[in-house]
């Protein structure tokens, strides 16, 4: 290790990210009151010692709901990115390495998917197949795959022309081994910032979908759903908007800073 200062982006990003991880762990352990328990007597209470973030219109404890939501958010973002990464890696490597007709077909398909603005395609897929955790993950994974495929393709094309790949070809190494052993480790190093950004974008999309009612289904909690429920009480109970928004921004900002840190190291 060279004696190098750790980028402040890492520190800030790490702190922000760990806030969400801690929230997620607390959510998994089931700390605090039941996030799905309604109570007629404690509706729209302001934050206090007994309800750290107040309560919502159905008397549910917001703190507990936020913890539960971070659990789903973290899970969906990681699972969705994994799906996208696997699809994107295979497609991008094939397109980049073989070029020609493979490249054209794969990129055409990828570009067509990317032509649907924002998360439109995922919205439709989920609305048609019914909102569920599983459907949200594969739909978002599919929508995000072309992004990874593009990055991979560019990297593979760049690496493919280098002398060590030529050398491997001269030695007679078969294409699958060249892709897996010679190209993949080098390309993957370049993908890491894209993965972190992908996690952030995945979270953005997931929260937007659940805001529109097409994400995680009630009574399960999710940031987007909490926010859309809170909208009617926005002036009466602003904490219902502020706390979940803050958590969402913390998570995305944390990821974003980490990716800036990784980029800065290169």
């Amino acid at each position: 290790m060279r004696n190098k200062k750790i980028s402040p982006y890492y520190i800030v990003g790490g702190i922000l990210f760990s806030i969400i991880v801690i929230a997620c762990i607390l959510g998994l352990l089931g700390v605090g009151p039941d996030p799905e328990k309604t109570s007629a007597s404690s509706k729209l209470l302001a934050p206090s010692a007994s309800h750290l973030m107040g309560t919502d219109n159905m008397g549910r404890d917001l703190f507990a709901r936020v913890l539960a939501a971070s659990k789903y958010t973290l899970f969906i973002s990681f699972a969705g990115v994994s799906v996208a990464l696997v699809l994107g890696t295979v497609a991008g490597m094939l397109a980049g390495y073989f070029g020609g007709i493979w490249d054209r077909m794969i990129m055409l398909l990828g570009n067509s998917i990317m032509c649907f603005p924002g998360i439109l395609l995922a919205l439709v897929a989920v609305s048609v197949s019914g909102p569920s955790l599983f459907n949200v993950i594969w739909a978002l994974g599919l929508v995000f795959a072309p992004t990874f495929a593009r990055v991979y393709r560019t990297e593979v094309i760049k690496i493919k022309g280098r002398d060590y790949i030529l050398h491997a070809k001269i030695l007679g190494v078969n294409p699958i081994r060249i892709m897996a052993v010679h190209i993949f480790p080098n390309a993957f190093a370049q993908i890491i910032p894209a993965i972190v950004i992908g996690l952030a974008n995945m979270t953005l999309s997931e929260s937007a979908m659940s805001y529109l009612g097409l994400g995680v289904q009630p009574p399960k909690a999710s940031y987007g759903k909490i926010l859309s429920d809170a909208q009617s009480y926005i002036t009466a109970a602003p904490w219902l908007v502020i706390f979940p928004s803050l958590m969402l921004v913390i998570y995305i900002l944390g990821l974003y800073f980490i990716s800036e840190g990784i980029r800065g190291d290169k």
Binding site: R162, D163, Y164, L166, H167, I170, P185, N186, A189
Partner: peptide, 17 residues
């Protein structure tokens, strides 16, 4: 049996291994 040595020593070895 053939061996090849290229011009650019930076690019001739795979940095991942």
């Amino acid at each position: 049996k053939l061996g090849v040595v290229f011009q650019d020593p930076v690019m001739c070895l795979n940095p991942a291994h």
